[in-house]
Design a binder for these strands. Structure first.
Lengths: 213, 213
DNA sequence: GTGCAATTGTTAAAACTTTAACATTTGAAT
DNA sequence: ATTCAAATGTTAAAGTTTTAACAATTGCAC
């Protein structure tokens, strides 16, 4: 039964992974059932918001009772797309690329990092965490052949858009970008800019404002 | 002349680092002057929003002319708190902690990473990128003595809040958290949760929704 | 089995954010 | 000198998001 395009707006989209985390926490505490009030209090949001949010997906709870942790978790897991496995590659084996490749929990969460790519001839042929590093010139073909879905961009910012363009041409579905620029692509390719500097500057900005600008 | 607390709301706060980036780009292209229209087009927002945003800081442009790139950049730099230097430490020398310590651009941007801390006896005494790793039990005293302002949390999630609490007790001003949990503290301590998983799940969620849920 | 407390789904109001509109200012062309 | 085009600052409208309110539903106590 195929329904229309889900209307998940930006603020809700940012809350969804948090719901997922807090529900996992409850699950680990072996809590079977929760309420919009409890969940909201834990997360620092109103119960109204929790109910409103869950209603976007069409009533995940039961009136008078609350929400079943497991069922809700499963539902949100699915909405987040975490029921599928993803074929992933990383472009750029600098600090951050290396670090993401070493993050071995990734696979257990459904993200299979198939290969790393770099321009540096000294790196090509080596491996990180058991994952081979290939010449970035071979990336396009690799994506096509293996049907890679997610590309992680960890190249220097002046190479980032070009790298993204290659991924897009090769038919990638999503790009997770760690370079210090915004990347652009066609609407059917999802791009998430995870610019770490922006996050840090947000911190200093708030520190600065607190000291009564 | 001390003014009242600047009213920078969340959406603007998230745009500020982007303005900073795009203005730096213009500066590097040796563009001397820009307009809300040009800047907005580059950033994919309306000129109205650009003007509205800058007006929060009291008119950074000149009517009929536009905005001087250098002056505007300097002003935003200051608002972001990037005119100060910051004493920084990193707790947890795993993948991400290691990677952030190796990011040598940090120092040139005003962030001096003074020390790393970990529980692992094998790591204590080693150094990364010239920065020593100390026993995490010594962290509190270190923060107090050196007047550390920013703490970066890269410890496992089940240790994250405890680590934050120690930092807060020691008088830290801001916490940049990479652990997979939200951290909480008193209002006067700024906490920025840079949960990478959340960002990734946002990506998969959008990929999932595009495929007509 | 009735009433009560708990809790959702849903509707309405309030708050916030973005966009549009326009008066005002500036510099350049004639 | 006047006019015009290009811009900002600012006010108002539109749109979005959050919060509040409440009817409907459930389970439990009596």
């Amino acid at each position: 039964m195929s329904r229309g395009k889900l209307n998940v707006r930006e603020p809700l989209l940012r809350r969804l992974p948090r719901y997922y985390r807090y529900l996992n926490e409850l699950k680990n505490m072996e809590v079977k059932r929760t309420s919009s009030l409890e969940l909201g209090e834990r997360m620092g949001i109103t119960s109204s918001q929790v109910r409103q949010d869950f209603n976007c997906f069409g009533g995940l709870g039961q009136q008078g009772i609350g929400y079943e942790v497991n069922a809700l978790l499963g539902r949100i897991r699915k909405i987040l797309g975490l029921n599928s496995r993803y074929k992933v590659i990383i472009a750029g084996v600098g600090n951050i690329g290396h670090s993401l490749a070493s993050y071995s929990e990734a696979a257990s969460e459904g993200f299979d990092i198939l290969a790393l790519f770099d321009v540096n001839p000294r790196l090509i042929g080596c491996s990180v965490n058991g994952i081979m590093i290939y010449d970035i010139d071979d990336m396009k073909e690799f994506i096509r052949e293996k049907g890679v879905e997610i590309g992680i961009i960890c190249v220097p910012k002046d190479r980032a858009q070009a790298t993204a363009d290659i991924m897009i041409e090769a038919g990638i579905k999503g790009i997770w970008n760690f370079a210090d620029v915004d990347l652009y692509g066609p609407a059917e390719v999802v791009i998430e800019n995870a610019c770490l500097n922006d996050s840090l500057y947000t911190l200093t900005c708030r520190m600065n404002i607190l000291q009564c600008f």
